[in-house]
Write a protein that binds this DNA or RNA. Sequence first.
DNA 1: ATGGCCTTTATCAAAGGA
Length: 250
Amino acid sequence: MKLTSWNVNGIRASMDKGLREYITSSDADIICLQEVKAEQHQAPLDWLTGYKVVWNPAAKKGYSGTAVFSRLPFKSHALGMNLPEHDNEGRVITLEFPDFYLVNVYTPNAQEELKRLPYRMKWDEEYRIYLERLGKQKPVLACGDLNVAHQEIDLARPKENRRNPGFSDEEREGFTRLIDSGFVDTFRHFDPSSKQYSWWSYRANARANNVGWRIDYWLVSECVKSQLKAARIRPDIFGSDHCPVELELK
DNA sequence: ATGGCCTTTATCAAAGGA
């Protein structure tokens, strides 16, 4: 089984910059997108054949939003976490399959001056509890833009970004608590030491210089570890300021 | 502290991103 996750930074813009080509050639069974910045009817998907589409738009037009495409049949889906405070921005999609849950998330950014960090920390805790609950019922495969680089190895300039959104101590600790709740950072499982990034600023030629951050992840329940086949980051794929991250299971 | 760049909205400037 092949799965992929990509923050597309506006699906309408990414469509002709590499998204369509990547999806049609990826042979992925499940495709999870974040920051689609559109409602489903605004995104022409006639080229996408064989996949069921689940869409969770934000209430605010052109902002945030997630989507999942699956060619594997699933039993049901849910939008959000069933928490009114956290469900206005189209950030979570859950699909229930016979043998596992799939969760796609776009974690809120802490914003300049960390002005949204208090909200972000509430979100992190609710999301952790949400995954933990699902994990008690079935194995969980959880992907998305978690908007945090976990360790110093996960970004090119750790010292300079110490108090910046995405690398504050609080956000990093939030990620650690999520992992400690019984999840595996699959990329690090296979590759404990390499520096690979999934996001680069559009500014200052950051991508060409590989000055990036690893903020997009596939996390899986501990019990899935033995079924992991590969976890890849695809910096060779363009179309967004993020690149896709892939997971392959036996 | 600021700017660097890109997508989107409702413009022809501002917000948001991380």
